[in-house]
Amino acid sequence: MDFRLTDDQLALRRGTRELLEGRTGGMPPRGGLDRALWRALGDAGLFALALPEAEGGVGLGLPEAVLVFEEAGRLLLPGPLAASWLAAGRLGVPGAADGTSVVTALDAGDGVPVEHLAAADRLLVLEGGAGAQARLARPEELCAAPVRSVDPLTPLHRVSGRTGAAAVPGAAAVPGADVALLRREGALLTAAQQLGSAGRTVELAVAHARVREQFGQPIGSFQAVKHLCAGMLERVETARSVVYAAALTENEDETAAAKLLADEAAVRGARDCIQVYGGLGFTWEADVHLHLKRAWLRAEQWQNTVTCEESLAAAI
């Protein structure tokens, strides 16, 4: 056992951070899904990370994907990243790997609105339990109405019905695309984004607490504020260890634990960061609310708290 990141993994993380910060200026992109950025991510190999090199991929595994998605989550990169990654790496959807095609997902079982439907080129339909195969449909085959999304950077559509292939059970199934595997990997990559966001909100809170002065001293010197920040880090580091472990073990229970704890680290981290920011945290101008809103959204996608807790209970 050696749980540490390898030099290659550290370099991958560093390189991803540089790429993303270079393209976004280090701020959450305010304009929603940016197709040029999506292409750049494709060129950099983000979607093809786990594809074998012979198929034009990078030939790396889930642990590397998790590190990259953590960086994406840190910057609140908008878009259906997990669905597009699965489409490229697990389903071989043309155009998904190089970022020319954006793929979003409908998980029919959980009633979560579909993200970025209008911008998507293809739609991954996940339904059924063990042994079911994922299906690939066209976004326009959904009867869907826009929802006023709580996350201003993630447009959502509520689905009321389906037409065409999307409406026919078993139609357009992708051979070998096991729904359970896709759900598990989608949950893990979403957990990785939550982890990145949670790590970022600790940084923001700590940076603010160091310079903001009240009562003649930095507010970070008060234990009430310190303990909020320590709690944030505790949740991040606990979530990190199980997210990375789940990438290695590919175990269903461990993935549920990763999603549960990463969701909690992201949601509570963003809330505590808003608290440390005070009045500033309640403004639209500060980016912190974007972390909370994205965290709320991601917490509902690819296994929410109830699903995770119930499956973890069943596995005891």
Partner: peptide, 14 residues
């Protein structure tokens, strides 16, 4: 209890 399962799984990884 499901949450505790997550908790002790994560603590061992930690």
């Amino acid at each position: 209890l499901g949450r505790l399962h997550a908790e002790f799984t994560a603590l061992w990884r930690l």
